[in-house]
């Protein structure tokens, strides 16, 4: 049960964090200047967006959940299962960011789901 909670936190908090950061960066606008001073200005603008703080908090939660999972499970099991974030990412892109997801991306998401299922079955 603990494993399931940790994987849920890694996938949901990790993906939620990335989606929040993505939403914050869309509010900030496209980065076209990569000079250090310009990047510092972009970071400053991003930190004034609430979504960025929510994203960083969720990603920190996902990182500590990953540490918890690695304390009780093997790396060769934990890391492949975290690929479920691609499934959560596609669903989040559709329902949270209102993006259109291509058939090709759905095919990739299906393959990831199939692979994770096999990894779970191979762990028995």
């Amino acid at each position: 049960m603990l494993e399931v909670i940790l994987f849920l936190l890694i996938v949901v908090a990790g993906t939620g964090g990335e989606l929040c950061v993505s939403r914050a960066m869309k509010a900030v606008g496209e980065v076209k200047d990569f000079r250090p001073a310009a990047i510092v200005r972009v970071i400053g603008r991003a930190l004034r967006v609430g979504w960025m703080w929510a994203g960083v908090g969720l990603m920190a939660l996902a990182f500590f959940s990953l540490l918890g999972a690695l304390s009780i499970l093997n790396v060769s099991f934990v890391v492949p299962v975290t690929a479920l974030s691609y499934v959560a990412g596609a669903l989040g892109a559709v329902f949270f960011l209102r993006e259109r997801v291509s058939r090709r991306r759905w095919a990739g998401v299906f393959l990831v789901s199939l692979g994770v299922t096999l990894v779970f079955l191979g762990n028995r």
Binding site: A83, R104, S113
Partner: peptide, 22 residues
């Protein structure tokens, strides 16, 4: 690492590759 897990990992790599090509 069981053979089934290696197969699952190979399919995950392929799936992530396909997602990246979209």
């Amino acid at each position: 690492v069981s053979p089934l897990r290696w197969l699952g990992i190979a399919i995950i790599c392929l799936g992530v590759l396909v997602v990246g090509q979209s």
